[in-house]
Structures are given as structure tokens and as C-alpha cells.
């Protein structure tokens, strides 16, 4: 059984360490906040100008002046601070944020990331994604292992070289998909290392769903 969105988010939450400052993207990455382990204290950054992001408000307590980067209403915590967009991105671009977890359209084995633009389609913009992947200390991608196009044909998203316009070059440290956990090796040949498999998923399934070569991590080989 492949992992559900929630299981992927739970796996991504294991990348958080006590004391981390973390930026979570929209979609599955947002769910990571629900899986932070007891005893791990992290501060969530919202790039529109807030550190210490709290949960969604109770109904009737929404405040139009208190939103996250997805424009959703949120709340404050005792640790909260507010600042301008310039200060927010100084934090991001200056390497002060420990971890960025975001979604992707394509990840290449050299660590390249594409997640903002499909040529020929209406482009909404990169928002803060290019700044995050260029500036944050470690970038973790959480996404479905493959994409399905309009005809239902399956397109691999872990590939040798990105076909879509890049968001960042050689920036991805780890990829968590519904099939497992993978590391772009960034070597001469385009290879992803398989670090973990989702429960019941086989290496053959991963190989078939991946657009380039894979190698099995020694740790995983021992387990199997």
C-alpha cells in the first residue's frame, strides 16, 4: 500500500528537529504541522511576515489581518513575531530558516526542482518558492511519485533532467512520495537513492514509476 497524503506528511515531520525554524508550503506540506512529535518544539515561518504560526482560529475568531502565505486565516502563539516582507525574506535568503518543505511538479537526480510553471498554461507566478529553495538550509519535497495527465497517462516526476522551467538548481535534499523516501545523488549519472519504501511497496514498483535509475541505500538493503 502506498502512503496516503497524511502518511507522507507524517514521514516529512520526522525531518523536523527540536528548535528548528521551518517554512511549510501549500498542500501536503501544510499537513506536516499536524504530525510534529511531542517534545519537538519548532517555530513555523509564514513568508508574508510571521514567525510562530498558530493553528486555524475557532469559527467567529477569524481576523483578516492574520493570515498565512496561502491566505488562510490563522492564529498567534506566545512565541509569535511579525515583520515586513523584506525582513521575512532576509530570514529566508540569509540562511536562517532550517528547513523548507514544499511540493513539486518535477525533481531531477541532480537536485533541480521545477514547481512553478508549465509553458503554454496560465502561469500564476513563483511567489516565494525561488527564494525559499535558494536560501533555506535544507529543502524537502513532498509530492505524489507520478503525475497523471488528462488522458490518464502516467508521467514520472522523479527524472534525470527537469523538462519544466526550474525553480532552483541543485537545491533538493530529500524527496518524500507516496512510494517512499528518496535522495537525489547529484552525481555524474542521474540516480536517486531509495532510502525507505512505503509499507508493501516494492523496488520494482518504484523502478517502474521513476524516470531515471535508482540505487538502494545500504541501510534499506540490510532491512530487506
Amino acid at each position: 500500500m502506498a502512503w496516503t497524503r497524511d502518511q507522507m506528511a507524517a514521514r516529512a515531520a520526522k525531518e523536523l528537529q527540536d528548535g528548528f525554524y521551518v517554512n511549510l508550503g501549500i498542500g501536503i506540506p501544510t499537513l506536516v504541522a499536524n504530525h510534529i512529535a511531542p517534545g519537538i518544539s519548532v517555530q513555523l515561518q509564514s513568508e508574508n511576515g510571521m514567525l510562530g504560526m498558530g493553528p486555524f482560529p475557532f469559527e467567529g475568531e477569524e481576523d483578516a489581518d492574520l493570515i498565512n502565505a496561502g491566505k488562510q486565516t490563522i492564529t498567534m502563539l506566545p512565541t509569535t513575531s511579525f515583520f515586513s516582507s523584506a525582513d521575512s525574506f532576509a530570514m529566508i535568503r540569509g540562511g536562517h530558516i532550517d528547513l523548507s518543505i514544499l511540493g513539486a511538479m518535477e525533481v531531477a537526480a541532480n537536485g533541480d526542482l521545477a514547481n512553478w510553471m508549465i509553458p503554454g498554461k496560465m502561469v500564476k507566478g513563483m511567489g516565494g518558492a525561488m527564494d525559499l529553495v535558494a536560501g533555506v538550509k535544507r529543502v524537502v519535497v513532498v509530492m505524489e511519485h507520478v503525475a497523471k495527465d488528462k488522458t490518464g497517462a502516467v508521467q514520472p516526476k522523479l527524472i534525470a533532467k527537469c523538462s519544466l522551467p526550474l525553480t532552483g538548481q541543485g537545491v533538493v535534499g530529500l524527496v518524500i512520495t507516496d512510494l517512499g523516501v528518496f535522495r537525489p545523488l547529484r552525481g555524474e549519472s542521474p540516480v536517486f537513492e531509495v532510502l525507505e519504501l512505503a509499507d508493501g511497496v516494492t523496488l520494482e514498483e518504484v523502478r517502474a514509476a521513476t524516470g531515471t535509475d535508482i540505487v538502494v541505500s545500504p541501510a534499506l538493503a540490510v532491512d530487506a
Binding site: 513568508e47 515586513s84 516582507s85 523584506a86 525574506f89 529566508i92 513563483m126 527564494d131
Partner: peptide, 18 residues
Amino acid sequence: YLAGELELEFTPQGTLAE
């Protein structure tokens, strides 16, 4: 935009702020 009536320059959010 798609009708060509509006020009658009995308700038990354942090680059725009800076």
C-alpha cells in the same frame, strides 16, 4: 493577460521585496 492586453513581469517574492 491571455488576450495580450496586459503585460506581466514576474519577480520572486523575496527579490521583489528586496
